[in-house]
Amino acid sequence: MMNERDLFAALPTIDEAVSRRLHQRLVDVANAAGLLDVAYRTIETPVGTLLLAATAKGLVRVAYASEDHDLVLERLARDVSPRILRAPARLDGVAREIEEYFARRRSTFDVPLDLQLSHGFRRRVLSHLPEIGYGKTASYAAVAKAAGHPKAVRAVGSACANNPLPVVVPCHRVVRSDGTIGQYVGGVEAKHMLLALESAA
């Protein structure tokens, strides 16, 4: 004689195809209702798996695997909105541009950006970074000067270290005045790789 729990254990688990279909449907209705505050996906690149997240305004976060994607999503929930779903479609354009960049077929990004995770001087620094052209580098001191605070060299360093949009906002092009490469949010190895990729073009 089966007991009641065993009776219901006989019910099959929900299969993958149904889960995927329901998830996609939720993404669609949430998007249509204006409730998909943050959409995200991951993308494989030569510098590892990148997490891409976008609000309705634009790309809000690019994160290296070393930053811990689960932790990054938790912080997005806290700092932007907990209405977060894995919804690749909103990031198709960004993903395509990043793939082209790593294939050396693209030197600038022209997707809309949402800089809400960066404030004050840090945000001002980030807004100047695209002025450093593809394949070029600039010193932390030069960027400090461009941002209007020639003495704020260390603050430029921390703006780069906290760049919410690495790769797309090119903080990897900022190096030390003595010519050494300096730190990078994705690790020094990734910074080397990006600079090598750009200089080989």
Partner: peptide
Amino acid sequence: MATKSIGVSQQPFEEIVAEHGPTVLRV
């Protein structure tokens, strides 16, 4: 690892769907 400060932050909704979606469908 950072621990969540209770009452301030919430899990991303994606985790809620993954964790509870199958049970709600069975219901």
